[in-house]
Design a protein around this nucleic acid. Structure first.
Lengths: 188, 188
DNA sequence: TAGATGTTTCAGAAATTTCTGAAAGTTTAA
DNA sequence: TTAAACTTTCAGAAATTTCTGAAACATCTA
């Protein structure tokens, strides 16, 4: 398959960046190509277009499926498997965040929690545990926060974004509002 | 230097995770050790404690300094250089986000912007450009948003976090507030 | 059942990244 | 100026990751 120069630069760039997001160069390229291509592509098309081996494509698709970023689809009367991305760009970002959280943050939280059960034996250990506690709390905050964002629809999110420098403002609004009611808490 | 088992597990874990955050195993270990150690450590102490070469420590400190995560400090009457982390855990998270943005997101945005200047030649290219536009917009949103968060004090952030499932609720409040385009209204 | 058309697997080759340690460089002090 | 105490550099060794391609496997059809 031929690709235009801008698609090519996009694909190469995401190959390089891909490693930062948890997959290797060729997997990043395969994903990028699928993102910007409307119709599903066969493994052979991917291999030829990107100049990589058929086996590599097979492994890459397996990995992207394990990330829930790619699905298989079939064309009636054709035995080949065709691949396409799952969902929108927003879904893509959500999925990547979620998977990375599962793979990176969750194990870290679990290790920190285990360590925090110990009693410090001396001043040095107490300091270390204090720092671990801080990291733990920070990660929990981020986790909770990102969960919130994920549950928002893209439309709502966009509204939120457009508030621009307003997050801080929103906070004081919230204070104002709840000052007059009596529940500062919005648990459900 | 001797380290307790929990510190050891912390250090090893951050060594493994470190690569996800943009630095390699030993750099991750060095940083983790500095985070949980109150007093500054010399290069030799780092090398001995982590069983790595002196040269590696030198390179690692250089890298962590380029990330603005570590600073050099001196002890009067001692010619050695001692290293310690800069700022709080919150500062650490901010710095890492900021640096990663600079290294990963900014170049991507710039590439996307360049590509988006092109006129699509056919339907396929139009689709590709559309997707690139969506990614561009998403990244801009995230960039703006994270800028907001960074400007918040940890205290305010904590308030925001405690809103818990309230972000969505807050949004509708905001709609209510601005619907009439006048001052806040105390009904809920 | 054989053969055609596809996919997956995985040993080891290739590429890349990381690490070591010796040599070179720097700074201080006598 | 020399020496001592320290740091940095970098060639190439070691470790790790990625990729290939041939063989094994799967499925369908005649």
């Amino acid at each position: 398959m031929d690709i235009s120069p801008s698609v090519q630069s996009f694909v190469f760039h995401f190959g390089e960046m891909g490693s930062r997001w948890g997959f290797n160069r060729t997997v990043g390229q395969m994903y990028a190509l699928l993102v910007v291509t409307e119709r599903p592509l066969s493994a052979n098309e991917l291999a030829e277009t990107l100049n990589i081996s058929r086996g590599n494509v097979s492994m890459g698709m397996k990995e992207l499926q394990s990330w829930r970023l790619v699905q298989v689809s079939h064309i009636p009367g054709d035995r080949k498997e065709y691949y396409r991305v799952t969902g929108s760009i927003w879904d893509m970002a959500n999925t990547i965040f979620e998977e990375r959280k599962k793979r990176e943050v969750d194990p870290t939280l679990s290790l920190l929690r285990d360590n925090l059960l110990e009693e410090p034996k001396d001043q040095e250990e107490a300091f270390a545990l204090e720092k671990m506690q801080e990291i733990h709390d920070l990660l929990e905050m981020l986790t909770q926060w990102s969960g919130e964002l994920q549950r928002l629809s893209p439309e709502k999110l966009s509204t939120l974004m457009k508030l621009g420098a307003g997050v801080s403002k929103m906070l004081s609004m919230k204070d104002q509002l709840f000052a007059k009611n009596n529940q500062p808490n919005s648990d459900s």
